[in-house]
Design a protein around this nucleic acid. Structure first.
Length: 714
RNA sequence: GGCGCGGUAGCUCAGCUGGUUAGAGCGCAGGAUUCAUAAUCCUGAGGUCGGGAGUUCAAGCCUCCCCCGCGCUACCA
């Protein structure tokens, strides 16, 4: 599969409304960066693109909240992204942005082509419309009460309190954020991509790797959870997806299309085409041909992203690319899962995160330490965990004690015994192998053994198994420590100088191999190692390939007679106070969060209503006479409630809070004249009134003494 | 409720198409060593592989049921 001529590598575009955190890094950008650096070091032709995703309602809302223009928001985050990625060593060939003219043009051309191909289905739907502001409302512009948790300021697409995904029509008491008015449903038409029509070829492509019988990739190379999630969607049947929206901040639907006025491209067509426009810009800047990378079968397209983006990149975007007709499909989509932080999910809105730009300031010069720990704990197959204690321990034991220590030992001894000159030695001179204290061995066979380890490393990376690759590197470093330990140069340097020269020469070769092999993972450290060893760091292209070729021939990496420099410490120990500072900072964000929930606990009053409107409600006391769990519904209980004059069936969403048996006989308050509604096939007549506290806990509202059922409440 | 991915030593995780006494790193205990940032090296203790049943000469790996975590999805007044 890696016989491809060139590689097109993308990393998911970060959304320009918040900073980058460690989850983004370990999930997307680090794996992509390591992979790309490896390809370059193998001499491959590769382009690595990314950019800011700068459109959508969330950005305009944030701008409004902060009293800024959307442009100011995206400029701020775009600059911050560039800075953060650069400082942590993510080596994009270009970091572009979707607000650029080139992107708008590219996305519009793409849309137009699909339109002309007749791929779209135009559909009319009912969307919320603000009559005062005279415009359709994006999901984010509608707030209302969350039907799941009762939070009053949920957005039309998501409730930020309970995290559930919503439709605007799910909201109770919807309000327009623009004018505060209650929006009305109004017909609007949009262009849909008929994924249902692509179902059969997408299914074949995902499950067999073949398109029209031609094998494009081997599904065995794809991660299980990626294929699993795609199959889950395919089995459920794909549905047409809207490619446009009534937005005001985004790429215009091309004017030549009738009905385009006021419509923008939706994120499905906007963001991923950002990969293409980024490549175009890169080609322009570097005098290259972008189309070779996207439209040629000898190119491999690889998408790096988090698991939230799997379906998008494995079904929708391929659907778009294929519908266009000229583009290749991704060869692999090595999506990662999520990284948790100290036992909890990382959450931007709850400020439960380690922000990379803050880390860079608070832990200056420790970029590679973060890269190392995030790679070691990369959520490759399942969710993983970041803890500050773990970070400290791993840095101190593996980077300081193992890698930096070995490097230091070799450099110090070389300076001490040979004034920093790589010693000459007799190839016939044997020594104890680093892999086995009892095995007497020789330089050439040890070099080949080293080649095998580097070869393992190479294979792991090509399988997107970065954790295993990193582990292999540490094994090489351990091998170095063992080599010194078994041969004890400090003991024999006067007694058996010939043997010590052979050992030290080989130890220096190991440091050289490490200096190169570590480069994709720890670029800053690699540079330091190159400098101390007097190796040239400027060239990246092909250096790993060259090294592997030398090793395979049994040849050393650094020739005898080469002068190395004075030792430096590659890493320093992370002290307890640094960790305590970070832990305390996290604890503080927890406190801040509870303060915020308390504030939001004072929910804003709903709009005033008239006495007549109140009078319309018929509220009665009642008694629950039976209760049972609804089949196939987690949250619903089916209740029989005695209202005195009749017994009603009421379905209530309280199953998460109460067990059926414990509420039988309970007195309750019922809104009795609510229009009936069918829930999971059962008609519910009325609603049980509940009180809710700030934590979402529910409590029945009932008379404080026994009171006859069926009494009215006014 | 449905679907997907996971549940392996105290912690973080490996275990290929089922095959001998289930592995690594950290931590822990004992020992060796001093070139090195009290680093290194060796040895050892520690697991009914989420629970139960089944298929098989043989199961951590296959089948079925159940429990737990994460995600998607349904229900949500």
């Amino acid at each position: 599969m890696f016989n491809k001529k060139r590689f097109m590598v993308t990393a998911a575009l970060p959304y320009a409304n918040g900073p980058i955190h460690i989850g983004h890094l370990s999930g997307v950008y680090l794996s992509a960066d390591i992979f790309v650096r490896f390809l370059r070091m193998l001499g491959k032709d590769v382009v690595f693109v990314c950019g800011s995703d700068e459109h959508g309602a969330a950005i305009t809302i944030k701008a409004k909240k902060e009293g800024l223009e959307p442009q100011q928001i995206i400029d701020k985050y775009h600059a911050q992204f560039e800075d953060t990625f650069k400082k942590i060593g993510i080596s994009f060939d270009i970091f572009h942005r979707t607000s650029s003219a080139l992107h708008h043009e590219t996305a519009q051309d793409f849309f137009l082509k699909l339109y002309k191909n007749g791929e779209f289905v135009e559909r009319e739907t009912e969307q919320y419309f603000d009559e005062e502001a005279q415009q359709f409302l994006a999901d984010r512009y509608i707030t209302g009460t969350c039907p799941k948790c009762g939070f009053e300021n949920a957005y039309g697409d998501q409730c930020e309190k309970c995290g559930s995904t919503l439709n605007p029509t799910d909201l109770i008491n919807p309000r327009s954020t623009l004018s505060g008015a209650t929006p009305v449903l109004k017909a609007t038409s949009h262009w849909y991509l008929p994924l249902d029509k692509y179902q059969s070829w997408l299914d074949e492509w995902i499950t067999t790797g073949k398109l029209n019988g031609v094998e494009l990739h081997d599904p065995a190379d794809w991660k299980a959870h990626v294929i699993g999630q795609c199959k889950s969607w395919l089995d459920g049947g794909l549905e047409p997806r809207a490619m446009t929206r009534d937005l005001d901040w985004g790429v215009d639907v091309p004017m030549e299309i009738p009905g385009a006025a006021g419509k923008k491209l939706y994120v499905w067509l906007d963001a991923p085409i950002g990969y293409i426009s980024a490549t175009k810009q890169w080609a322009k800047d570097n005098n290259k041909d972008w189309e070779k990378y996207w439209k040629n079968e000898e190119s491999a397209l690889i998408h790096f992203l988090g698991k939230d983006n799997i379906v998008f990149h494995c079904l929708i975007f391929p659907g778009i690319l294929h519908a266009h007709g000229e583009y290749i499909l991704p060869l692999n989509v090595p999506a990662n899962q999520f990284m948790n932080l100290e036992g909890n999910k990382i959450s931007t809105s709850r400020n439960w995160a380690v922000w990379v730009h803050e880390y860079l300031k608070e832990m200056p010069g420790r970029e590679d330490e973060l890269r190392y720990y995030l790679t070691k704990n990369m959520p490759e197959q399942k969710d993983s965990e970041f803890t500050w204690k773990g970070f400290q321990e791993v840095v101190n034991t593996e980077l300081v004690n193992n890698l930096a220590n070995f490097f230091n030992r070799v450099v110090v001894l070389t300076n001490k015994y040979y004034k920093g000159v790589v010693p000459d030695f007799d190839l016939e001179e044997g020594f104890y192998s680093g892999s086995d204290a009892d095995e007497y061995t020789y330089m050439d066979s040890e070099i080949v053994a080293l080649y095998d380890m580097v070869s393992d490393l190479h294979n792991h990376i090509m399988n997107f198994d970065f954790r295993a690759g990193l582990k292999t590197i540490m094994e090489i470093s351990s091998l170095g420590n063992q080599l010194l330990q078994f041969n004890e140069p400090w003991k024999y340097d006067k007694v058996e100088p010939e043997r010590v020269a052979a050992v030290m020469n080989f130890a220096i070769q190991i440091t050289a191999v490490l200096a190169i092999a570590v480069r994709p993972f720890l670029p800053f450290t690699s540079k330091k190692m190159h400098e101390v060893l007097g190796m040239d760091f400027t060239k990246e292209n092909g250096v790993l390939l060259d090294m592997m070729n030398s090793l395979a021939e049994g040849e050393p990496i650094i020739p005898q007679g080469h002068q190395i420099n004075e030792p430096i410490h590659l890493f320093s120990r992370i002290t307890d106070d640094l960790i305590e500072f970070q832990m305390a900072k996290l604890e503080n964000s927890k406190v801040l969060e509870t303060v915020e929930t308390e504030e939001t606990a004072h929910k804003p009053l709903k709009p005033e209503i008239s006495y007549e409107e109140f009078q319309k409600m018929d509220i009665r006391t009642g008694t629950i006479i039976s209760a049972e769990k609804m089949e196939k519904a987690d949250k619903l209980l089916m209740l029989s409630v005695d209202l005195g004059f009749e017994v009603r069936t009421i379905v209530s969403g309280i199953a998460m809070h109460f067990k059926p048996e414990e509420i039988i006989g309970k007195q309750v308050t019922v809104l009795a004249n609510l229009a009936p509604r069918k829930l999971r096939g059962v008609e519910s007549k009325g609603m049980i009134l509940m009180a809710e506290d700030a934590t979402g806990k529910l409590m029945f509202i009932n008379p404080d003494e026994d009171f006859p059922t069926g009494m009215t409440i006014q």
